[in-house]
Amino acid sequence: MESFEHQFQRLERIVEILDQGKEPIGTLLELYQEGMTIAQNCRIYLEKAEQKVTEIRQNQDSVEIVPF
C-alpha cells in the first residue's frame, strides 16, 4: 500500500474536488470510486495494525536490525 499518509492526503483532496464539483460528472464518479476504495484500504490498515518494534544496533562496522 502506498504510504498511509499519502493515501489520506489523496482522500482529502478527492473530497475537496467533489465538493467543488467543477469536473465533468464522469470524472467525479471515478473520483468517488477511488475515494471509497482508499477509505476502505485505510480503514483495513488501521484496524489490522499491531505495534511492531524493531531494534537497531551497531556492532563495530555493521548495523544490525532485529525485532525487539
Binding site: F4, Y45, A49, Q51, K52, T54, E55, I56, F68
Partner: peptide, 10 residues
Amino acid sequence: TPHIQVYFCP
C-alpha cells in the same frame, strides 16, 4: 496508534 512502527536504538 498501533499502526505506527517503532524503531528503537538503545
